[in-house]
């Protein structure tokens, strides 16, 4: 068995050292070789028009609560890109944890996107229900990231913590999650490209600039008062906040 594997491996390696054939996929049923490139993404967490600064800055939300943010992180998963010919690229193993206190998490790259013009994208803010019950995970979904509830097991999709004079103990903890039932918090986001598009070409990597506005977390459709929502986990309040933040991410520019 081992010997055979080694031989097969050698053959595969030999093949992979050959130049990639230049074949352009023209329809999505094409089973031939498809030329691809990466697409880069850069996310800036914002409060309205200002970049989010942890701890040092105070902000005012829709309810006119003054607050500061000490922790902000959330999952983006199941990214799909739609090409102008109707083809949909679905990124495999598409799970990313965006953390304000870790700048490396704010940019990422999606590899192996077939060439072409992409006109829209869609993703989940959170984690699909299947991965909430699929056992021990790795990478962004590793439970050591402090984004996994151990008692009502499943992922915390988004977390915001901070200080607020209006709340009973002067601080707030909003942990949003829950993947089933009436208070499901899985929300999809498909930020508009406007008239722009992502041009995936062979010799240049496009970059999609996005912003996440945390003011959206606190409004539309529900105005969140930090006194009443100082401690949020699964349930109605989490559901309301998830519906609010479904539109917190937008595309600000695409650099092709």
């Amino acid at each position: 068995m081992r010997k055979l594997s080694v031989i097969v491996l050698f053959l595969v390696l030999a093949v992979s050292c050959k130049k990639d054939p230049i074949t352009q996929s023209t329809n999505n049923n094409d089973t031939g070789f498809v030329q691809t490139n990466s697409v880069d993404f850069q996310i800036t967490n914002m409060v309205g028009s200002m970049p989010l600064a942890l701890n040092t800055q105070t902000y005012i939300n829709e309810n006119l609560d003054t607050f500061s943010v000490s922790l902000f992180k959330y999952y983006i998963s199941n990214i799909k890109l739609k090409r102008d010919d109707g083809y949909e690229f679905v990124e495999p193993e598409s799970y990313r944890l965006i953390k304000q206190n870790d700048s490396t998490s704010l940019s990422f790259s999606i590899p192996n996107v077939p060439l072409g013009n992409y006109i829209s994208m869609e993703f989940i803010i959170g984690v699909d229900s299947l991965r909430n019950c699929s056992g021990a995970q790795t990478g962004a979904l590793d439970p050591i990231h402090d984004m996994f509830w151990d008692w009502a097991q499943g992922y915390i999709f988004a977390k915001m913590e901070g200080s607020c004079n209006a709340s009973p103990f002067g601080n707030f903890f909003q942990h949003i999650g829950g993947f089933t039932g009436q208070w499901n918090t899985i929300v999809k986001s498909s930020p508009s490209f406007g008239t722009n598009l992502i041009q995936v070409v062979s010799n240049k990597v496009p970059k999609v600039m996005m912003k996440t506005d945390i003011l959206e977390w606190f409004k539309n459709p529900s105005t969140i008062d930090l006194a009443g929502y100082s401690s949020v986990a699964i349930g109605k309040k989490a559901h309301e906040i998830a519906l609010n933040y479904a539109d917190m991410i937008s595309v600000t520019a695409i650099v092709n």
């Binding site: 019950c133 699929s134 056992g135 021990a136 439970p143 996994f148 151990d150 008692w151 097991q153």
Partner: peptide
């Protein structure tokens, strides 16, 4: 029934 997969069960009592 707070645990939906046997693999993740130990996290509960260890962290509780």
């Amino acid at each position: 029934g707070g645990v939906n997969n046997l693999e993740n069960q130990p996290i509960g009592p260890i962290q509780n």
